[in-house]
Design a protein around this nucleic acid. Structure first.
Length: 424
RNA sequence: GUGGAUGUAGCUCAACUGGUUAGAGCGCAUGGCUGUGGCCCGUGAGGCUGGGGGUUCAAGUCCCCUCAUCCACCCCA
């Protein structure tokens, strides 16, 4: 017996219906905003991520699925989508001077983490990237798309958390100040934060431990140290959000785990999800393209977690549209009848009607039970008697009535009945 | 990676302090007179009790290891 690898899962047909729903709603909205789909490979040169996402980040330093292929190349299963899109943007020359290029992607990401509800080693992300402008309106457009998606899916009371991380100019300065401030308090920090002090200083702001929370309270906020450009960008972002009447929450502790983020970062959390509660996140990355070898190009993007979104929808009790159901079931009695029925079935399907048949020569009673379970509107019953008379029985399952219909008229009468009831 | 909980039929769960062929509900299959669904009733299939080792006359039950899931941390979607 084989099983799925830890942290991976089969998406069974019932579950797949939900995926398709979330995917199609998102796609529709992304395209409305002018984003076009791009598909990049699932594995890339490891360097793309160490360079793009940042060597010191947790994701890169301890969560990547990396290996050497048979040609000795260093390969990594992508842990996130932005770096690949940026790579494609540069490699395929997708930028047009003075214009914003908009892309969206759907696909699996891989991270070697300890699995938990809402956290898997292979999970699906669906995200947007807008490359080619520093305009804060773009940051707000992305947030707006997210909210549109969730609203359309039925999650209307979600709001984004917002922060600014500054740029390569002002963030290092703030980091120095932070470091200076924490220097003599370092020993009082929790074990994790002691490590973060050297590795990933800003994350200390995000620590949930009480002991650290107290210390963080006295530390100057990043807002006071943003450079003129970043501050202006931040103010304008908030201005646009207000103009769009988008409710948001400032979260000065919001620090994202990838190094490429600059200025705006945002995240949408769902209160009904436990600790893995971020269903979408993103921000601006004005230096990534340049870092990866392109021209300096400002950009921003976000990503939605498919599994978490579906969990959220379920926890809110939101109904998913049901998949298409068969309208007709062919119940055949005996081999002769089946041989005829299978041909009739093909014709019915050719006429665009979903239909099913029993393949196992079961009793009529069993077949009728199946017809009932499938919830079909009509059952067509075919037996020796009917064949002898060149007719079949068409049974209306809801009305509990059946009538004999000449074989030649079956398709017409059935499709008429079905279209009359608006069932196609 | 750290800490904790759990693991019995397809699903949800039961089996007193270790003690016969491990049960129930739902679901599934089938039958209730010759060829008719839903309700009801009968019957049946389906478990090496996650896996491996140990203690014992005897292990679903106790011990160890392992795997998986869940929860929190960490991190993120």
């Amino acid at each position: 017996m084989f099983n799925t690898i830890k942290g991976t899962q089969d998406i069974l047909p019932d579950e797949m219906v939900k995926w398709k729903y979330v995917e199609s709603v998102s796609r529709k909205i992304f395209e409305k905003y002018g984003y076009r789909e791009i598909q990049t490979p699932i594995f890339e040169d490891t360097g793309l991520f160490t360079r793009g996402v940042g060597e010191m980040t947790d994701v890169v330093s301890k969560e990547m699925y990396s290996f050497k292929d048979r040609g000795g190349r260093d390969i990594t299963l992508r842990p996130e989508g932005t770096a690949s899109v940026a790579r494609a943007y540069i490699e395929d020359n997708l930028g047009i001077e003075g214009k914003v290029s908009k892309f969206y992607y759907v696909g699996p990401m891989f991270r070697y983490e300890r699995p938990q509800a809402g956290r898997y080693r292979q999970h699906c992300q669906i995200g947007c990237e807008a490359i080619g402008s520093v305009n804060p309106a773009l940051d707000v457009e992305l947030i707006n798309i997210l909210l549109n998606c969730f609203e359309e899916l039925g999650l209307s009371d979600l709001y984004p958390q917002l922060n600014s991380l500054g740029c390569l100019e002002c963030r290092p300065k703030y980091r120095d100040i932070l470091k200076e401030n924490l220097k003599d308090k370092k020993e009082k920090l929790c074990e994790d934060c002691k490590l973060r002090y050297d590795r990933n200083l800003l994350r200390i702001l995000d620590c949930k431990k009480e002991e650290c929370g107290k210390i963080i309270l006295d530390i100057p906020e990043i807002f006071n140290f943003l450079c003129k450009e970043c501050l202006e960008h931040f103010e304008k972002t908030k201005y646009f959000l207000d103009e769009f009447k988008i409710k948001y929450v400032l979260n000065k502790r919001l620090v994202r785990g990838f190094d490429y983020y600059t200025k705006t970062v945002f995240e949408i959390v769902c209160a009904k999800l436990g600790s893995q509660n971020a269903i979408a996140g993103g921000g601006r990355y004005d230096n990534l393209i340049e870092t990866l070898g392109g021209h300096k190009t400002a950009a921003a993007g976000f990503s939605i977690g498919m599994e978490r979104t579906i969990l959220a929808l379920q926890n809110y009790g939101i109904k998913f549209p049901s998949s298409l159901k068969s309208k007709i079931f062919l119940a055949c009695i005996g081999e002769k009848a089946f041989n005829f029925g299978i041909k009739l079935l093909a014709q019915i399907r050719k006429n665009g009607i979903l239909a099913e048949i029993d393949y196992n020569n079961r009793s009529l009673k069993s077949q009728m039970r199946t017809a009932n379970d499938l919830g079909v509107k009509y059952a067509i019953i075919i037996g020796e008697n009917e064949l002898a008379k060149n007719s079949v029985l068409v049974r209306d399952m809801e009305k509990n009535q059946q009538e004999e219909v000449p074989i030649g008229n079956v398709i017409a009468s059935v499709s008429e009945a079905i279209s009359k009831r608006g069932l196609i």
